[in-house]
Design a protein around this nucleic acid. Sequence first.
DNA 1: AACAGATCTGAAACTTGTTCTAGATTACTG
DNA 2: CAGTAATCTAGAACAAGTTTCAGATCTGTT
Lengths: 203, 203
Amino acid sequence: MPTQHTKAPPSPLTERQEARRAGILSAGALLAGRGGFDAVQMREVAGAAEVALGTLYRYFPSKVHLLVAVMEDQLHRLRAQIRSRPPAGATPGERVADVLGRAFRALRREPQLADAMVRALTFADRSACAQVEAVERLTVAIVLDATGLHGEPGGELLSAVRVVEHTWVLSLAAWLAGRADADQVETDIATACRLVDAACPPH
Amino acid sequence: MPTQHTKAPPSPLTERQEARRAGILSAGALLAGRGGFDAVQMREVAGAAEVALGTLYRYFPSKVHLLVAVMEDQLHRLRAQIRSRPPAGATPGERVADVLGRAFRALRREPQLADAMVRALTFADRSACAQVEAVERLTVAIVLDATGLHGEPGGELLSAVRVVEHTWVLSLAAWLAGRADADQVETDIATACRLVDAACPPH
DNA sequence: AACAGATCTGAAACTTGTTCTAGATTACTG
DNA sequence: CAGTAATCTAGAACAAGTTTCAGATCTGTT
């Protein structure tokens, strides 16, 4: 394909191709799960997925595209998990903090995978704009789900959600790089989530 | 050098070496100013700074180290500029927003340089931990300066400052990648800065 | 001034992301 | 079924970050 639109698939993709794409994604996730970003070597991904290098590049035009797609995939799983156990918390902000804290604890068990995804996401340039936007839309959707609010969110709330999202990503990156401890990450997420409450009782 | 400690220089660095280091930094900033991260090619940096490739790597053990050091350099300049024209705003949070908004507008005129610095900063791994921490300390100092507050900042305020910092960096990255417009960046920075006010009138 | 050790140079080599090419396979169309 | 366009494969080739090495140069010491 390459670009992954939510609604309008640019080209249908046969069953075979869908399977190939899934195989590549899971090979990427596997390698990322060991050594992190650096360990995801395109030749190895191609080998593990049993496709030629050129084919890999036809599906994902760069390593960053691939890993951002892996992240999108993981977010879908996260969302499913969350649905099966809804967030706890008295206020929307607390529920968001609960969900993100849970996601953080899940990634603590897969730090290498987290490293690969976060580095790819923050390193992405204009060429991966569409993929990154897909990840952002998903993240925003997960966070908005967590608030438990319905109806069109206001601009103020959306801004707060973006702040929360940025905090989540860079806190995680800081923890992965050994520059912050886990408590600090959870604290900062909770801090950012106060903005969600501030923006909730509309205007 | 490589590692840049604030207090204890690991090895003194002769005048000649200091000049070489500065030359490399300015060559790096120059190349970054055109083409951004990708245009900073280590061979070209070495050529422009008139040092051998091996020497460049002795001073900065990787491209990321180099560009993070360039960022540190730019932050020093920003801090000097800010001192010459103190931030405006009624509350600490507004003053922080003013300073960061000013910094953002400055970088809008040098988007390629900003691209190189931001990508390097967010892509840095454990090996550049010390350099990134230097940048973080500087950023935090600039933000705390802007609040106008004195004395030891509380943990709550520090957490708010980190949230602001993360928002600042990733908003800028989103703008650079064409995923957000300038208004959105300023809005989100202002949103995050509310946390500073919330944390200021101590607990 | 002569020596030892650190630093610098120039150039080659190595690694890994990315691109390219020629030929084999596959999928669709008449 | 034949023909044609798209896709896939294997592998070479290219680009840029990084490492390595032998020899030149510089620094500080005696």
